[in-house]
Each structure stands twice: as C-alpha cells, then as structure tokens.
Nucleic acid binder design. Sequence first.
DNA 1: GCGCAAGGTTTACATCTGTAATCGTTGTGA
DNA 2: TCACAACGATTACAGATGTAAACCTTGCGC
Lengths: 129, 129
Amino acid sequence: MTPSDDNSGERITEAEYAVMEALWDRPRQTAAEVCEEVCGPRGWSLATVKTLLSRLVQKGALASEPDGRRFLYTPLVAREAYVGGESRRLVERLFGGSAASLVAHLAETEALTAADLDEIEALLKELRP
Amino acid sequence: MTPSDDNSGERITEAEYAVMEALWDRPRQTAAEVCEEVCGPRGWSLATVKTLLSRLVQKGALASEPDGRRFLYTPLVAREAYVGGESRRLVERLFGGSAASLVAHLAETEALTAADLDEIEALLKELRP
DNA sequence: GCGCAAGGTTTACATCTGTAATCGTTGTGA
DNA sequence: TCACAACGATTACAGATGTAAACCTTGCGC
C-alpha cells in the first residue's frame, strides 16, 4: 500500500465527490470558490457546498487551512487513491476480483472503442517489454 | 441499446445485489431458497431477504410468479445489463468516459496481475485479428 | 461605532438503505 | 376442525445522504 492510499474507512459519497473533484483540480479553494465551480452544474446552493465541505473535513478527506476569517480546503485523499479504491471495489463486487474480467466485459459490450484498444495495447507493450 | 439493457432508472443497491446474484445463478427461487444461499454469508434473516425481494419487485428488477401460496422470483434485469451499467457509470464518473483510462489505472496501480495481463492480451488478439 | 455581509457551525428534514419484527391470511397435519 | 406454520404485506427504525435554512461570530464600510 503506497502512502497515498486512502485507508480511512470513511467513504466519499457521490455528492461529496463533486466537491473533491473541484479541489483536486485546484487545491486551496474557499467554499465560495468551490461553489462557483460546482453549484451551477449540480444546481446546488452555497449552503450545500458548505455542508459537504464540513462532512469531508470530518471524514478526513479534506484539510481546512484558516486564511483570515475563512478556510481554504485541500484534499488529503489523493485522487488516485480514491479512484483506485472505487475501481477495486467495483472489480471485487462485480467481477469476483478479476480485473481481466472487467476488461473482457468492456470489450464484449463494445464499451471499448478502437482507440481504447490501441491505447490498451500500447499500455501492455509498455508494461511487459 | 440492446433489449437486455436496463433502462429503468431504479438502481439496485449493494444488499439487493446479493439477492440478484442468487437469482441470476438460479432463477425461479422462493424467498426461503434465496435465503439459504445468502443469509448465511451475510448474516441476514429471512425477513431481510423478503424485504429485499419486495423492493426489487417494486423496482422492476425482479418478476414474481405465483406458485401456490408462495412466489418464485426471477430477474427481469439481465446480469450483463446490470454489470455493464455499473461499469459504464464508474468509467463515466471516474475516468471521464474513457475505458482505456480505467485499464491504464488498473495497470499502474498493479491491480492487474501477470495473469490478468495475459488474459487481456489474449482478448486483444481475439478482438482484432 | 454599528449594522451588514461573509463565513463557518448547527440544526433540519425528506429519502434511501440495511435490517428486521409484526400482521394477516391460508393450507395442513393432528 | 382447529391451532400452527409458512408466506407475503405492512410497519419500524436507525444511520447515511442530499439539500438546505437558521444561527452565530466577526471584519469592514459608512
């Protein structure tokens, strides 16, 4: 397990994820700034963003650094860790832990475009010279 | 969209998924039969299974066919459709819709074993002769 | 100096989920 | 025939989640 792996049981929900995304893209933002990014698309109010930020801080997914009278929020959980965790959960749950099965499924259901296949092929070559 | 694709907005939860699995493995089972399969591993009571079955019927994920005084339950949503839907959701949400990115991520985080890589390689060969 | 706006914190509340217990009906064995 | 067991249906209830309003403090403009 690498240091960036998220081991804290607390799961990040879908709504919270939107907030995390904004902060992964640009850390050290205020609640208002985050809202500017996410409130529009999701139809949220600033209050909602504040709640989500608080919950994320509680969960240990965000750090809040005081900056005058407000806070700057920064992810403590790396995007990689989260994405990795979620991916592994899915593979575990739906494919009995076999990542290859997932890839096979994507391929069979034509979820993989020709470009995807190219990329994957290149990846494979890179992984095993 | 193929006919087996699940279009009914109603999402299947994790607990419900356990019940679906039992019925995908063997359709037309009674509540008691499903319980025999899942109650042990999950530590559930028959009552819980009944609730989940009801909810799944309501959601349109299961059909209940009367058999004397009880019901036989059968999936209306194909396993493939569900698994495909969930996979696509994940890829959409976490990888901006790029399945290749998911594979790349799995590879980078060593979620792919050598055996997985072999399988995928074989798959690729099969997909593009 | 003082009221207002901006911030965070607390409280709210409906829905969804997990996990049952209870209720009401009905076939069945004694 | 009659109590009981087996079923589905109804109700329960706590915790998570989505979505916010209300509240409290404090720096700032007038």
